[in-house]
Design a protein around this nucleic acid. Structure first.
Lengths: 323, 323
DNA sequence: TCTTGCTCTGAAACCCGTTTCATAATCTAT
DNA sequence: ATAGATTATGAAACGGGTTTCAGAGCAAGA
């Protein structure tokens, strides 16, 4: 029984106007019981389905939320999207996924879709485009970021990475570490900058020199741990502790340590981030990040764009055996 | 400069009919150079953008492809989606993601969106609904599956899991193993069934008894390896080799083995599937699955639904150190 | 009794493109 | 020279809903 009827036919069948049918469909008040029942009967009999594109055209909304992520294939974004998706289901929204590989062109496409009203709102889980560009598109619909935007006119759910990185550094300091390195996913980006700033401020506070070699970038996946250990091995004065902003990478490092007989945590302490399942099984000390929660929240902000609000979520230290 | 103009205004400005504007927008032939330039000028001046929802209503297509996955947060589906997404970008399509957690209700929503023409085609990376239900929706648009559908009237890109599982079993057999267990992601599903059938046929062929304890289900993530090793430890007569249909799980098992001093591969051989990065770093022997490729192909079939076609892709053994 | 204010209803305007059809002008081939 | 194809153009129909507006019926308050 292929889709056939349109609202006119329903109106004819129920002997009412299309307006009344539309009212029934949208649960408007001011429809008499009698006519409502007649319309519902006609709908049932014809197996009528609204043409959703017509609805979109009329209403100018699509019930679609854009989600920008650099890689679909990474547990951090996996969890974030999971959180967004679950909340979307609850609220009868669907997601349009933009996998960008951090190409600005892809991000621009997402923004353009917002402009064209093909999506109702846009969530940036991570971005490469400058803020200025994103700002230009804010008139077209809600845009939500997943980074600290306090002081800016754009809503977000975020973790204060300056704060949590500082917390992590202090934790290592209290465990006696003075030579601390770190691994970041990328060189640029709001979150990375916050962390680097925290690092520099920390060094200053404890009065230790800045060692450029102690920084590692492009640490994204399990396999990136190899390169870190390789570099460490080549150092005459390697760090005694490593802050690793992804449990995947931390796990990769850990495996390499075992292989190369580097004692963890005695020779090298490893502190992860995310508290992914892999951290649990590998007994990784890590900072729990409420990613699912964060996803929930992001979607909520996207569909209830009442006011600009910045929602901070907090990390929690999970002590296990690598520090 | 908020969106303002519509096609009528452009027509007025360029002193042509809306039809001609539409022709220019859609690169129809039969527009004189002169008018084409006038229209393009008006478009540029007003910064005109087509209302995409009106286009959808008119054309009955959306340039949106639905992608059904159970979990966003799993490397198998991550790679598959990555492959689909990359090909989508190339062809100017966007993806609508349906994360189902294997709930039929979610799968149904995706199918309904196809019916409502809110998406042009639908790709099932994995499904829970019976084939019969999916079949009912095939009149509404292309549906592509990621499983062996040969003999069925529905397109797919797939790996013959019967074949590859048999290949894996034979490989272990030739290495001297007779007591072989396996870990699957779920109890039901087309791929799992093929593998179980391969297993049974293999046992019969080599004339070994069927040992129900050697089967493990719900092995999806890294942490699920723990439970497998726990069970194995409690067995008086455990398998000497394990076929693990996800490198994540295999890696989890491997880590647990190290922890419990189970020698791999001497005491327990582990054979993974997928050839994820984690397999490389952990020196896991595994079957490479062309997931990105598969994703590319799935999208291609979705947007070029000319005829029913079943595209088989092949696994490739990667010998490392766990068998 | 007269106003005011609900409740209920439908005609018509609106959202905004695409496509069909009719017509005219200009070529091409016989 | 003439039938037939090709190029070029716009009016109008179409896709299918939502929303505005005007009007009718009826009840409550002044």
């Amino acid at each position: 029984m292929i889709n056939i009827a349109n609202i006119k036919e329903i109106a004819k069948m129920a002997k009412v106007s299309v307006t009344t049918v539309s009212r029934v469909l949208n649960n408007h008040p001011y429809v008499s019981e009698e006519k409502r029942i007649a319309v519902e009967k006609a709908i049932k009999e014809t197996n009528y389905q609204r043409n959703i594109n017509a609805v979109h055209l009329s209403k100018g909304e699509t019930k679609l939320i854009g989600v920008v992520i650099p890689y679909a294939n990474h547990p951090y974004f996996g969890l974030l999207v999971e959180g967004i998706a679950n909340e979307a289901v609850k609220n009868n929204y669907k997601l349009v996924l933009f996998q960008t590989n951090y190409e600005e062109q892809r991000e621009r496409e997402a923004l353009e879709m917002l402009k064209l009203k093909q999506i109702d709102a846009l969530i940036f889980c991570s971005r490469n485009s400058r803020f200025k560009i994103i700002d230009k598109y804010m008139v077209y619909g809600p845009i939500i970021l997943c980074e600290d935007t306090r002081g800016k006119n754009i809503s977000s759910t975020f973790i204060d990475h300056y704060k949590s990185f500082s917390q992590a550094l202090n934790y290592l300091y209290n465990k006696g570490h003075r030579k601390i390195g770190y691994c970041l996913a990328r060189r640029t980006g709001s979150n990375s900058s916050s962390r680097e700033k925290a690092y520099h401020d920390f060094l200053q506070k404890i009065n230790e020199p800045f060692e450029p070699n102690y920084r590692f970038y492009d640490c994204l996946n399990f396999e990136d741990g190899q390169e870190v250990i390789r570099s460490l091995n080549a150092m005459s004065n390697p760090p005694t502790a490593l802050l690793v902003t992804s449990d995947q990478v931390a796990a990769g490092i850990l495996v390499c340590c075992k292989e190369k007989n580097i004692a963890v945590p005695d020779e090298l302490a490893i502190l992860g981030f995310d508290n992914q399942p892999i951290a649990q099984i590998m007994k990784l000390t890590t900072f729990d990040m409420p990613l699912i929660n964060m996803g929930n929240n992001l979607l909520h902000q996207a569909i209830h764009p009442l006011v600009v609000n910045h929602e901070e979520l907090y990390v929690k230290l999970i002590e296990r055996e690598t520090v």
